[in-house]
């Protein structure tokens, strides 16, 4: 109940002026960008699906399941999923005007993101050592490009999180910053649900 009060108040505080849709310009713009990004990842995922069976070219492997380390990737997927939880907890704390908790949760989210990126770097290194370079065949090009784009999105998200934490050192991270945190959160969750798709479509679903 207290949360709800704060959320609505914060919204009023930040709204400044009425918009026609009742949505702030910033939030509308963020959702438009996310909608647009669906087409970006759609194209990359489709490119991968087109080449998904080509892993055997120039490599000793016959199927992607020969190279994927599912337990490891499951763990890093789980880490990214839980970073979405810490992100909503950060927003919830900022809405309560609990600056300290807000910063801690934001930093935790960034940290979980870094763990995920670290896992990705490790995976890429292992693949490379096994002879799956970026230029080896169409499969590797598509795989590294798709997961690489996702990794860049996560990295940008980490920078946004750190920017929010350290950029508000002077101005404070009170509930008037709720919209900033909310927008960073929207971006972060989007990156997370893209990984939900990538994890299922690329790693788990068997070919044939």
């Amino acid at each position: 109940m207290a949360n709800a009060t704060v959320a609505v108040d914060a919204h009023d505080d930040h709204g400044h002026h009425e918009t026609n849709t009742g949505i702030s310009n910033n939030k509308l713009a963020m959702w438009l960008f996310l909608a647009s990004d669906c087409l970006l990842f759609g194209a990359l995922i489709s490119t991968f699906l087109l080449y998904r069976t080509n892993i055997s070219d120039n490599t000793p492997f016959t199927s992607p399941s020969d190279v994927f380390d599912i337990p490891f990737t499951s763990l890093s997927s789980f880490v990214l999923l839980m970073s979405s939880l810490t992100m909503v907890l950060a927003l919830s704390a900022v809405n309560r005007d609990d600056q300290r908790a807000g910063r801690i949760w934001l930093l935790t989210t960034a940290l979980l993101g870094m763990v995920f990126i670290g896992g990705q770097v490790y995976e890429f290194t292992v693949f490379n050592a096994e002879g799956l370079g970026y230029t080896t065949n169409t499969w590797t090009s598509a795989f590294f490009t798709l997961t690489g784009f996702h990794g860049v999105h996560v990295s940008v998200g980490i920078l946004l999180l750190l920017g929010t934490v350290f950029g508000t050192r002077n101005s404070g991270l009170g509930k008037e910053k709720s919209e900033t945190v909310e927008l960073v959160g929207l971006y972060w969750h989007f990156v997370d649900i893209v990984w939900v798709i990538i994890f299922t479509v690329i790693y788990l679903i068997p070919i044939g």
């Binding site: 849709t21 990004d37 759609g42």
Partner: peptide, 21 residues
């Protein structure tokens, strides 16, 4: 919990991407 316009915009992009690809 948010304005339905946001859901519509996002779903439009998502569905368009799925159908086209």
């Amino acid at each position: 919990f948010d304005n339905k316009v946001l859901t519509q915009l996002f779903m439009f992009g998502l569905v368009l991407a799925i159908v086209v690809y």
